[in-house]
Write a protein that binds this DNA or RNA. Structure first.
Lengths: 202, 202
DNA sequence: GTCTATACTCCGATAGAC
DNA sequence: GTCTATCGGAGTATAGAC
């Protein structure tokens, strides 16, 4: 069997199972038997279960943050606060509309894992985006201090992660007849409006 | 040894260890040896590790939601949007200021666990508060549809849980010199302002 | 009723055979 | 590069001591 083929089959199966049952609730035996490879293959190719998760998270975060930076760079000098918020949120929410809905689950889970090494890994990936984002917000809301921008940035990340992870499960449980809660475009626009208004409060 | 004393020692130790290392990363053997009781005591008193978590979560959610309902009931007929948001957020953030900071960790973790039974348990506890909250928001923002209120309610919960869990860890990592990010009063006021503005956007 | 000792199954990891 | 065998530790269940 090919090297890359085995690795890819493990990654695909792990992504699927992690998304469905969660990292801790998925065993290496489920992954390897699902992928049709030997139990020891995960240790051989990735170094262990945790490094396998790191690989998945990195593969998701890298293109996402690259796209965020690309959009931030494309902003003109007289951009609005909503433009900046959109640069940050839209690439993440776009993933929800793609066919593979494992990715947002993996992403949301990663931020929530109580794992210092993983937290540091994520922080390192997000840092350059955060720095550019703070500057861009500062341009549109000069009266807002750095502490305010940082705090509100955390609120935005929290709201985004919650939506990525649960996909408004609480709201849909409370009102099953509200079909708009299943519409990702509706949720995306609501989230962008919500966060833009939240930031703009000087 | 007394019945209630053994149960309480298990609850206290479990709360501490779950908060520090996470539910999945804490073993029953750590809990029982830390509490000075036998391994089987958890099965005997709670039925298993999962039911032990349920008990902890319930003990945290019950008084929190009772306080939220009490404050919602105390609102006068001409309340503001900020009043309603404050009723929901302040009791949760007040916990942060208490000496026992295990509780917010347990709360944030509970929402994060990929566990359908736990999700249902939480949804059932939150449901009465959510229903009253939606009505109260509707009073102040009559042009807002139910779907909008529900979606934005999810964003607010996401932002709150993120703060409860990480206590603005990302922001503090990005700017260690911003002391205000360690001030719970500052974070609370910022969160209330952020969510109030987010809801008010009709 | 409370608690102890113990056994059972499953987990992640790894040394070593092939 | 792949696989088997095996290890220590996990959660769980229970028989029996007090």
């Amino acid at each position: 069997m090919d090297n890359t083929e085995t690795k890819q089959k493990i990654l695909d199966t792990a992504q699927e199972l992690f998304a469905e049952h969660g990292y801790s609730n998925t065993s290496l035996r489920q992954i390897t038997s699902g992928a049709g490879v030997n139990l020891a293959a995960v240790s051989y190719y990735f170094g262990g279960k945790e490094q396998l998760l790191f690989e998945l998270v990195g593969n998701t975060l890298r293109p996402l943050n690259a796209e965020r930076l690309r959009r931030l760079d494309a902003l003109t000098s007289n951009h609005s606060t909503e433009d900046v918020v959109r640069c940050f949120l839209e690439p993440a929410i776009d993933i929800l509309s793609q066919d593979n809905c494992d990715i947002p689950c993996i992403l949301g889970q990663a931020h929530r894992e109580q794992n210092l090494a993983l937290q540091a890994f994520i922080a390192q990936e997000v840092r350059p985006v955060a720095a550019r984002f703070i500057d861009a917000i500062h341009d549109t809301l000069p009266r807002l201090g750095t502490a305010e921008i940082l705090a509100r940035g955390e609120f935005m990340i929290g709201a985004l992660l919650h939506v990525l992870h649960s996909q408004t499960a609480v709201a849909r449980a409370l009102a099953p007849d509200q079909q708009r809660l299943n519409d990702n475009t509706f949720i995306a626009e609501q989230l962008i409006k919500f966060c833009t208004a939240g930031f703009s409060n000087e």
